Computed example of a mutant assay.
Amino acid sequence: TRRVRDLLLAVAAGGGMAWLAFAMMSRPFAQSTSTFFLERALTEGGGTNVVNVMLVDFRGFDTFGEIVVLGIVALTVYALLRRFRPAVETMDLPEQQRYLPADLQTDLLNPRNATDTAIGYLMVPAVLVRLLLPFSALVAFYLFMRGHNQPGGGFVAGLVFSVGLVLQYIISGTSWVEAHLPLYPRRWIASGLLLALGTGLGAVALGYPFLTSHTAHLHLPLIGDLHVASAMFFDMGVFALVVGSTLLILTAIAHQSVRSHRYHARLMEEEQQAASEQTAVPATQGAV
């Protein structure tokens, strides 16, 4: 009876929201803001991607407030997880990792101090994610540069680049990545906010309202006409902040694995110490 009740509630809630969304999207409106943005995105914003032009040109101040909130949320999650300790029963290694043959060449025997994690266990994924990192940076750069006229932009580019970095943590481990590729997510967040703020203050210095955008047209040999929007620098700030916030939140979670391995190492030391004490007692009694 309880499951049937929950099912009916779920169907009613989902169907009601679907009907409401359909009714709102199919209803004709005499006045709509979408027409304003569609007509002025190219002429006044300098781009054909209406969504990106809205975010970084027409509503840049609103977007600036959103990235500030995103940075605050990332710092808050990081501060909370710094003091978080996982439950004891979840901190030990899985059974299949605790009983490996001693002669097996695998980084699981010494996962956080291995000179190279691309051996033995997860060897193929470890090699692939390292090759994937420069490609993710290239795709992120491509999405960033086309964002003003085609689908893309700083937010999407930041997420793509963050995925490439997070995969390094997943496969190679937190300690190995931070030893070979220091990222400093908090600096990414600060740099992104300063770059976005500097873009807005640049317009104020030239006598325009805060975050007023401008497009400069350049002609480069072999490339042709190139338009450079001041909103691109604002989008760079969005990119940096998204990368920093994503890494700060996810790496704070990843650091729990470091605590679990320290816990496992401490248990191993206690077991070895107890075993050595048990073997030492009979020998002492015999000598007496």
Rank of each mutant, 00 (worst) to 15 (best):
N149R: 14
P182R: 15
A23T: 11
L197E: 01
A265L: 13
V139C: 04
F239D: 05
L222W: 13
V281S: 06
G200H: 00
V288S: 04
A157H: 06
Q256N: 12
N49W: 09
L159W: 03
Y121F: 14
L241N: 07
L195A: 12
V243W: 00
V53K: 01
M54Y: 07
Q256M: 10
F36T: 09
L226Y: 14
F234M: 08
G45V: 00
G202W: 04
A12I: 03
L9C: 12
V77S: 08
A287D: 06
W19A: 15
Q31W: 02
V156A: 09
I119S: 10
T90S: 11
G152K: 02
R27S: 15
L222I: 12
L165Q: 05
D62A: 08
H261V: 11
R266P: 13
I170S: 03
S230F: 01
E39F: 07
V56K: 03
R85N: 08
N49A: 05
R130Y: 07
V11F: 13
F233C: 04
L104C: 05
M232R: 08
V56P: 00
L131R: 11
L143D: 01
R112D: 14
V258G: 04
E44K: 09
V204W: 07
H219R: 12
I171H: 04
L138R: 09
I189P: 01
V156N: 09
F135P: 02
S257P: 03
R262A: 03
P151S: 12
L7K: 15
R85T: 14
Q278M: 13
P134R: 13
